[in-house]
Nucleic acid binder design. Sequence first.
DNA 1: TCTGGGGTCCTAGGACCC
DNA 2: TCTGGGGTCCTAGGACCC
Length: 427
Amino acid sequence: MRYLYHTQSDLVMLALVDCNNFFASCEIAFDPTLRNKPLVVLSNNDGCVIARSKEAKNLNIPMGAPIFKYESLFKAHGVKKRSSNFTLYGDMSNRIMAILSKEEFPIEIYSIDEAFLDLSSLPKEKLLSYAKTLRKKIYNYSGISVSIGIAPTKTLAKASNCFAKKKETEHVHLITNEQITEHLKHFLIKDIWGIGRAHLAFLTARGLKTAYDLCQKQDDWIKKHLTIQGLRTIKELLGVKSIDSIDRFCPRKGLLRSSSFGKEIEDYKELEKAISYFCSEAALRLRKEKLTCSYLQVFLHTNRFKTPNFSKSLSLALPFPTQSTRVLTGYALTLLKKIYKPQTLYKKAGVAFGDIQTSTSTQQDLFVKESPKEEKLMKAFDEINARYGKKTLHLASEGSSNSWKPKRVLKSPSYTTSWNEILHIKI
DNA sequence: TCTGGGGTCCTAGGACCC
DNA sequence: TCTGGGGTCCTAGGACCC
């Protein structure tokens, strides 16, 4: 090993709590008929697989599998399918994160189904028993099973979680400083957090297999071929903190709304409806999070599985920060007009907001300001929609019929967020 | 026929300035 | 007539993550 860093990080222990097969587990928690069955959760448009139950994984259905290629396998094994229900998953995630937040350890919510906890204040001998208790608590409160990996850095905690997931029952694992080398020898490069497809192919072609192999390489070699990010990953694997341990306040930097269409779209008016819809969704999100943006991008893609295909995007720095649906949609539609080409079949479009700031701290330009009326208008707009239902008010450019919208025919009910769809129990 | 969406970070290269 | 290099800023595109 190149480094022996067994001093500075002796005191740090991070746990990664990761929900097992999260989207599939959420569906199963509310529908017992799915229990112990192969289940796949599908992407927008019911196009490909984005989550799998344990049984579906055992059938070697890969992540991202386009379902039209797997229909016969699904039929042969009675694989159940569900469209994705992000309202349900988001709500379940909030519940689990609330349980973790009450644990009184520093926490960083990393994704919809993962959080890091800083357990440095716990004595080493109590780490595993604490993790086991926490797992039980989360399962009892939410019906979701989690894995917990503990180690001195985030990247090692991720690795530790992989070891935890492979266990039959407990799904809890600890890597101490003394055990790092031994673990690296049994940890494959393909499972390293931060090494993706492209770099994996590069490293495999050079005969490297395990994390240990990779750690034998010199820093400048790593940096040259895997960039500075890769070097950070390697250091973390060796027990040296190179990613901020726990970051509780990470404001968002961008906001994107996009989707593939249910069919290919040529009509400009339809694209206008779609872009307007994305803008209104993204702007609503800005207002909910009390943020503004002052950078806007619009993009269009043709079907990327056909040749030739192309994409076009255009962006614009706004004259002032805003969160207004009206203002943002106005600019977005002028951008759309500039990039639209007639006689082209588009398959996907979207808008992205950038230069995001909190609305209270927004630096207003001395002369160019948004009219204060705009803020009042949006407030009234949101209140009416909150009271009388989503989209009671919307911009005319959004239209009322949306032939571009993707299909989601197998969606489960919004059990936890809609009174009309609440779970019924028959006794 | 049918192939996701929402993020972050890094790098290379062009424009521009001195 | 000949000819430069360094710095900054911006953006597109790639790689990675879930």
